[in-house]
């Protein structure tokens, strides 16, 4: 059974903005969504997380999360599912952390709320979590402004996986970071997937980021999925003009031009 299944999901404000997105995510699998800002990729993720912005609604299709049809979930059930079944990290990690609390206390709080542990146990678990995202122990007592963007994103990943979710959505989670830091974060996600069987939805404007480790790719533009399929097919037999544009950009201006094809 799939962990997350979107069937022709449509999202509307006063008019329809996302015109039907479908994909299924199996345990340990990775689905990638590529698109510009405004393509509807973030709204799709938010729908799957049950956190659509005010006045937005799912106007068609269905989302099934770990066997539950989300349309029938009460807010309380949603709260229980978020964190323990599905979780997410976003762009701009600094805005998701309270600047006046230490990193450790914020991760420990998530542990306390989601796992119902006591203070001491929560603290121990938080230290473990920080170690699992390869952060030094000293980070526990540090404040957000003392850390780099990459370390902040790691802290948020630690908080996101605190309740051992089955699905993690990474929505432009590496966009604002330096290239080398982006690579480290992507490596971390790949590692977590291997070690815990976490299924990932990786969302990016950059096809190459998604291509790194996704099995299936959705290319979105203006709320429509213009192309969808296994990553090899998208990369080597793109059908839609927009997908071809994304590839051409890399082929003619990126590193690919120089890479020795082996």
């Amino acid at each position: 059974m799939s962990l997350l299944a979107l069937r022709d999901v449509k999202i509307a404000y006063d008019r329809e903005i996302v015109h039907g997105v479908s994909f299924t995510l199996e345990p340990g699998a990775v689905v990638g969504i590529v698109g510009e800002s405004g393509s509807g990729k973030t709204l799709t993720c938010r729908a799957a997380l049950g956190i659509l912005p005010e006045h937005f609604r799912i106007s068609g299709g269905s989302i099934e999360l770990d066997g539950h049809d989300v349309a029938s979930l009460t807010p309380k059930q949603w709260t229980a599912l978020r964190g323990s079944t599905i979780s997410a990290v976003f762009q701009d990690p600094a805005s998701y952390l309270n600047p006046s609390l230490t990193i450790g206390s914020q991760v420990a709080e998530v542990v306390r709320v989601k796992l119902g542990l006591g203070r001491r146990a929560a603290r121990l678990r938080a230290v473990e979590l920080l170690a699992s995202v390869r952060l030094p122990a000293a980070v526990y007592k540090q404040y957000p402004h003392e850390l780099s963007g990459g370390m902040l994103q790691r802290s948020l990943i630690a908080a996101a996986i605190a309740a051992q979710p089955k699905v993690l959505i990474a929505d432009e989670a590496t966009t604002a970071l330096d290239v080398t830091v982006q690579a480290e974060i992507l490596d971390l996600l790949a590692e977590l997937r291997e070690s815990t069987g976490l299924a990932l939805v990786v969302v990016s404007h950059d096809l190459a980021v998604v291509a790194q480790f996704c099995d299936e790719v959705l290319v979105m533009r203006d709320g429509t999925v213009v192309e969808q399929g296994p990553v090899e097919k998208i990369l080597y037999q793109p059908e839609h003009e927009y997908t071809r544009l994304l590839i051409e950009e890399h082929e003619s201006y990126g590193l690919e031009r120089y890479l020795v094809t082996s």
Binding site: Q182, E194, A211, Q212, V231, E251
Partner: peptide, 21 residues
């Protein structure tokens, strides 16, 4: 070397190595 390895490319062949950078 680290930089070149970090740049995401469309070549699946150089899919990132798990041992890290």
């Amino acid at each position: 070397r680290k930089l070149i390895r970090s740049v995401p490319t469309l070549r699946r062949a150089d899919r990132r190595t798990p041992e890290g950078i």
